[in-house]
Design a binder for these strands. Structure first.
Lengths: 235, 235
DNA sequence: CGATGCGTTGATAACTTTCAAATTTAGTGG
DNA sequence: CCACTAAATTTGAAAGTTATCAACGCATCG
């Protein structure tokens, strides 16, 4: 009942992989399982460029569009009452954002590097979905993957500073083409706001991981030297 | 396009309320929006009793069943490598759990009070879903509500101990029949494992909130005396 | 070459955990 | 219903972790 072979069923259960997918597979799962979805997205979407630092959409705006990163990098975030910024996700090329569970965006989105996005009007997607179950399946798969990501983040945030940073590095590594060499598109401040830490703590933690010889650190680039030790430090 | 009036569309977007629903509305949203779903659940489900402390299902077991709490209380959790327990959610009467995004449960579930659950075989639900769009809509609504909950928890866990406890109280209050008087079905240890704190910190934080005259505290019962102050402390 | 933004480093303060009781609560058998 | 026991919660003191504040270094860019 819950096997991939049943993927044409109308139920959400059948859309889910048997094993939780590693994050790196978001793009590929969608490619393999939802070719029709991707085709619609490519046809009905248009490319928009966002210079670094520009807001792509704001919290509480009507959620009219779905976005797929083509190049660069994007984050979604929320500003809390006291002015702190909580980043809820980073999105790299091939990944989707703007998939909100209500009629209005729950978060704001901003380009953290100069970025290009494929922008798809949700109403167009929905029209396509009525005639093509693969499209609605694609949307559901994205939603389920997002849920899995967020659940992982809950586990991450319950831990110590070192475990958070390690978890972040492993997550980024899983999404990188090369699993060992990470180009970090975001600033230290972005990492801090993602992990609920300060930039100083992020900086010091990276340094201590370097001292332990599990990673090499430069400003925008991390090399994982000892992955098994890193995984052990993940708790 | 994204209005509630469009709820019969095949797209997940149309299933979502315009505004994020407060948590208390999980049960009622399902009642109102998914009468057919609830009917199927009631018909095809059976009642099982679980004494307090009993495991209902375990992480990595095949996710064959969906559960709806009838009485008592349940939590889902994960044991981390170092033995810590991270509780991922509490479920009160009327709420669903066991809705996993993969073919196997991501978490374990346990009765934190003597509990009765309606147990529904997912394969039966899926069969019903093929003939009745309302059923698959119901599943999707549950999934989307779960996503919203988890997103709120991410925001919670990035904050200070006091803000976490306050957020927890506000969340529980929103789910209680009376919004001001909370019966807590869980132990302090459960609250601590939910918030990523120690029981001592939870205890001290509750005491300090009592000192601030925003709540009254007894072992299993909280009364919110000053809701607006409490909300302000939520960050 | 100064200005600016970003990252690192150091010292101190604030917060949270840890460890070790003491106290209260809940359950059980008399 | 009371006494006893085990479990749960609270409290206190000390240790550990992270944040805050301040300064410095290091690039990039006009």
């Amino acid at each position: 009942m819950l096997t991939p072979s049943n993927a044409s069923s109308n139920s959400i259960f059948s859309l889910m992989p048997r094993q939780p997918l590693p994050i790196r597979d978001q793009a590929s799962a969608c490619r393999e399982g939802c070719a029709a979805f991707d085709r619609i997205v490519s046809i009905s979407g248009f490319i928009v460029s966002y210079p670094r630092g520009v807001e792509i959409f704001g919290e509480n705006e009507p959620a009219e569009y779905l976005y797929k990163v083509v190049s660069g990098a994007v984050c979604t975030y929320k500003i809390l009452n006291d002015g702190r910024r909580q980043i809820s996700g980073f999105y790299l090329p091939g990944e989707f954002f703007g998939l909100q569970y209500s009629g209005e965006y729950e978060f704001s989105a901003e380009a953290i590097r100069d970025a290009k996005s494929l922008v798809i009007k949700k109403s167009a997607l929905m029209a396509a979905a009525r005639g093509d179950a693969a499209v609605s399946h694609g949307l559901l798969l994205l939603t389920a993957l997002e849920l899995g990501r967020v659940q992982n983040r809950v586990l991450l945030l319950a831990k110590s500073a070192q475990e958070r940073v390690v978890g972040f590095l492993l997550e980024m590594a899983a999404r990188s083409p090369s699993g060992r060499s990470l180009q970090l598109p975001m600033l230290r401040q972005d990492i801090a706001d993602y992990l609920g830490l300060t930039i100083e703590t992020v900086s010091r933690t990276l340094k201590s991981l370097k001292k332990l010889a599990v990673i090499d650190v430069s400003t925008r680039h991390i090399v994982i030297r000892d992955r098994s030790s890193l995984s052990q430090l993940n708790g």
